[in-house]
């Protein structure tokens, strides 16, 4: 099968079960959202898929290949990338340098010594394209630390996209972004490549219902239900458990 295929995934910390028997598919071009109350295990799930955490049981396959034994860096090379919930950028470097780094590394040029980092026109063209795609051209030479938080979240997405992933996990892309800037994030997600498989983990329901074509609800480490946004919005159990009537 193409894309990501998770079967019976579980994770225990001692006696505490944080993920239990999760079955999950993410084919190319998917736009899925993972929602659930605090402590439902959403971030744990993302960390299991990206290799930051090792699962206690179950399998993770990507394009039919078992990737459960690979570490985080190796899974990135296979095309599975995740943005950070708390912005983790190279804050002292400029926006352009932040994007140049992942492109260099993806192309295996990151260890080169005797040429300038900005001397490869192909790499520079790719960096410029990313800057344009995320509306960051005007800020390209500013250190990231000087940017507004919403803009930093865009850099975060651009940086991850620079790895040319085939699976992109957005871990709370709008967390901490003032509501006046949320639309920037939504537009950026809408402009992601068509064939990219996207999983959004998010609390902001406006964002979830804008970008997701399918929603998975996670409660206490288990999948409660999965469905189209309209179904999830109507689902009485979900509304009671999670939405708390906010959309009713």
């Amino acid at each position: 099968m193409q894309g990501l295929e998770v079967r019976g995934l579980s994770k225990r910390f001692g006696g505490l079960v944080v993920s239990e028997d999760i079955d999950f598919d993410l084919p190319p071009g998917a736009r899925k959202a993972l929602i659930g109350p605090n402590g439902a295990g959403k971030s744990t799930f993302a960390n299991l898929v990206t290799g930051i955490l090792a699962p206690t049981g179950g399998s993770i396959r990507f394009d039919g290949q078992d990737i459960a034994a690979l570490d985080e860096a190796e899974r990135v090379k296979h095309g599975i990338a995740k943005t950070f919930q708390i912005t983790t950028l190279f804050s002292g470097l400029t926006v352009r340098e932040n994007l140049r780094l992942p492109v260099l590394e993806r192309l295996g040029q990151g260890g080169r010594l005797f040429r300038r980092a900005d001397s490869d026109p192909k790499i520079e063209a790719e960096v410029e394209a990313l800057l344009a795609q995320f509306d960051l051209l005007a800020l390209a030479d500013r250190p990231v630390v000087d940017l507004a938080y919403g803009q930093q979240r865009l850099v975060e997405m651009a940086l991850t996209l620079a790895l040319k992933p085939r699976v992109l996990i957005l871990d709370e892309p709008a967390a901490g972004v003032p509501s006046s800037e949320t639309h920037l994030i939504i537009e950026a997600i809408e402009r992601l490549p068509e064939d990219l498989a996207v999983l959004v983990i998010e609390h902001d329901m406006d964002l979830v219902f804008r970008v997701a074509r399918s929603i998975v609800v996670l409660v206490q480490g288990r999948i409660l239900t999965e469905g189209m946004p309209e179904e999830i919005a109507r689902n009485a159990q979900v509304r009671e458990l999670y939405l708390g009537g906010a959309h009713g």
């Binding site: 983790t88 950028l89 260890g111 080169r112 790895l163």
Partner: peptide, 28 residues
């Protein structure tokens, strides 16, 4: 001076700024 401006030098600055992120972009 050459090394500092090279891709290798940039990656060292990256490690200095954020080792977690360097791992996340696939660097040992």
């Amino acid at each position: 001076a050459v090394i500092a401006r090279s891709p290798f030098g940039l990656s060292l600055r990256g490690i200095h700024e954020s080792p977690e992120r360097m791992v996340a972009i696939g660097v040992s």
